[in-house]
Amino acid sequence: MLKDITLGQYYQADSVVHKLDPRVKLVGTIAYIVTLFMFRNLTIYLIALAFLVFTIRLSKVPVSFIVRGLKAIVILLIITALFNLFLTPGEPIVSFWRFSLTYEGIAAAFYLAIRLIFLIIGSSLMTLTTTPNQLTDGLESLMKPLNKIKVPVHEISMMMSIALRFIPILMEETDKIMKAQMARCADFESGNIIKKVKALIPLLVPLFVSSFRRANDLAMAMEARCYQGGEGRTKMKPLKYQKTDYLAYLFLLVYLIVAIVLGKFFPLHILQV
């Protein structure tokens, strides 16, 4: 039952985007998000849309797959849009009781919805084309300068990758404990929410105990294999920029410049607000 849950929905495909260095994709995603929040006009979103369509095409990830990622935020999207629609002060179009629909509200809701949707699509495109492993490697390498201010970058990325490795194991373990408790008449399904949460306690306690034991074992196994932290460590798969990575950086730079220049000097507005 619990085995179906996957983290980081990687979509296997053979494309340029998949082969890009994870650092390029991380930097690209950040740059893309920055452009989304930089200006508040239509031009920037048209450019962002063009950028998205282009990269999605390149990545060979089916659009339906990406759109599925939006399902998770539909409710959030509707609520925030409603709030923005009716609670933004301005020139009212229709009003009832205390709420009024304003032009400003429509504009605010529209921009917010677009920003959120673009944000989710863009970042899920990154997780769809990058394995969790590559992501942690990329993050470690990008955050390396933080080492100078005593941020334990290597340790953080090590913890991340170990956590990823142990998710399926702990899932299996949870399943096992659940079945063992159910065999002794534990009830996880009926009752109201408080009852359900209470029923989880006999599940969580053994799970915690066993994960501590696992952590202890793992630490011993790592030490037995000469693990002494990040210093003096070599990499089996070191990150190396290829020609396409430099091209991608160039492309990103062009995108940034175009977005900034057009967004700043040729703004298109909806409803003239």
């Binding site: 294999r225 000469c226 693990y227 002494q228 070599t234 990499k235 089996m236 798969k237």
Partner: peptide, 9 residues
């Protein structure tokens, strides 16, 4: 293990 020992890639 070899990574920890600093063996070349």
């Amino acid at each position: 293990g070899p990574e920890n020992m600093g063996v070349p890639t």
